[in-house]
């Protein structure tokens, strides 16, 4: 870690700058006089500013939590698949999420407590997503040991299946119910579901603690399955556990900021490129920071440029080009 001291300082300060830009840059460009002399207006203005800041603060928090969850689990997922390009978002958690929400509205109507209470709704959605992914793990990994690439393929097909089912339910649903449903299903970075942030943070902490406890094991698992087993790692068990953490993390991130498929790919590969190490601890920290920078700074820039595009699209474009570069480079070495 010491060899990269300068780099850590740069990345660390960039992260802080990103957050500050997101929180405060609007003040610079605001057409209003934010600190008027008139005392009554000053009080009102201060209230308005605090209001905006607290909203932005929660948004930043949601983005940070999601970025950390996505980056760190992508890192572990790459270790499990022995591959630098695949990310867990390919499993298609967003499709399962949409289907769960549609099914809730369809079965219990949009006025039910499962739909209206954000915490309960989130819990139901997360448990369902977790259930589906665990079922998939069991079905596939038991018969085909450690074949995660196969798992991904099944995941993609399942997501097409569940998306078709959701669309079907949505077509035959009452139009008003459908309207209220879109609020939940069209979650994206510019339309975050921040109401669940106070349950997302503890979940992130749980996942992170669990992951950090196993980081050394993951270092060994990088060597490959036979080598790791030879060195005394109970490979299948550790992998199944890691997949559970990944499923939890992806469920939380999807419910909060929607699907961002290429973020993990960019963050983890950039971190690998910079650090040139196989140790998971520094990689996890750096990729989380890079993830935060991409997400928060990207969103800040997009807001300031008047929503020229969305950060999801931006990340997909950058990430896609980067992926092609990685695929071609892999061949040369």
């Amino acid at each position: 870690m010491k060899a990269h001291k300068k780099m850590w300082i740069i990345v660390g300060s960039l992260t802080i700058i990103s957050i500050l830009v997101y929180l405060f840059f609007w003040m610079v460009t605001s057409p209003y006089d934010l600190f008027p002399d008139d005392p009554i207006r000053a009080i009102r203005m201060r209230e308005a500013i605090l209001n905006i800041l607290s909203r932005k603060g929660i948004q930043v928090l949601a983005m940070i939590v999601s970025a950390i969850l996505i980056s760190s689990t992508s890192l572990v997922f790459q270790t499990m698949t022995q591959n630098r390009i695949l990310t867990p978002s390919l499993i298609g958690f967003d499709a399962i999420f949409i289907t769960v929400q549609t099914a809730i509205v369809f079965l219990f109507t949009s006025s039910s407590i499962f739909y209206l209470n954000p915490y309960l709704n989130f819990l139901v959605a997360t448990i369902m997503m977790l259930g589906v992914s665990l079922l998939m793990y069991r079905l596939i990994l038991r018969n085909n040991r450690n074949n995660i690439v196969f798992l991904l393929l099944v995941g993609i097909i399942l997501s097409t299946l569940s998306r078709s089912l959701a669309s079907f339910l949505q077509t035959i649903m009452d139009p008003e119910e459908f309207q209220s449903l879109t609020i939940r299903t069209e979650v994206s970075i510019s339309n975050m579901n921040t109401s669940i942030i106070w349950i997302a943070i503890p979940m992130m902490l749980i996942v992170l603690t669990a992951l950090t406890k196993d980081l050394k094991t993951y270092d060994v698992m990088t060597l490959g399955e036979p080598q790791a087993i030879g060195l005394g790692v109970s490979y299948s068990k550790k992998m199944n556990l890691a997949l559970v953490y990944i499923a939890i993390a992806m469920s939380v991130a999807t419910a909060m900021i929607g699907p961002i498929s290429f973020l993990g790919l960019i963050a983890v590969n950039a971190a690998r490129e910079i650090l040139k190490t196989y140790r998971h601890l520094p990689l996890l920290i750096l990729s989380s920071l890079i993830g935060i920078i991409f997400l928060v700074l990207g969103q800040a820039i997009i807001i300031e440029t008047g929503y020229l595009t969305t950060v999801t699209v931006l990340i997909s474009m950058v990430g896609g080009a980067y992926m092609i570069y990685l695929v071609l480079k892999e061949n040369r070495t």
Partner: peptide, 24 residues
């Protein structure tokens, strides 16, 4: 299986370009 996964990610990138242009 790896090859079609790459194909789908490649498709996702093309879609995001389309979304970008359409948004613009």
């Amino acid at each position: 299986i790896y090859v079609p996964l790459i194909g789908m990610m490649y498709g996702a990138m093309i879609s995001s370009i389309a979304t970008f242009i359409a948004h613009r």
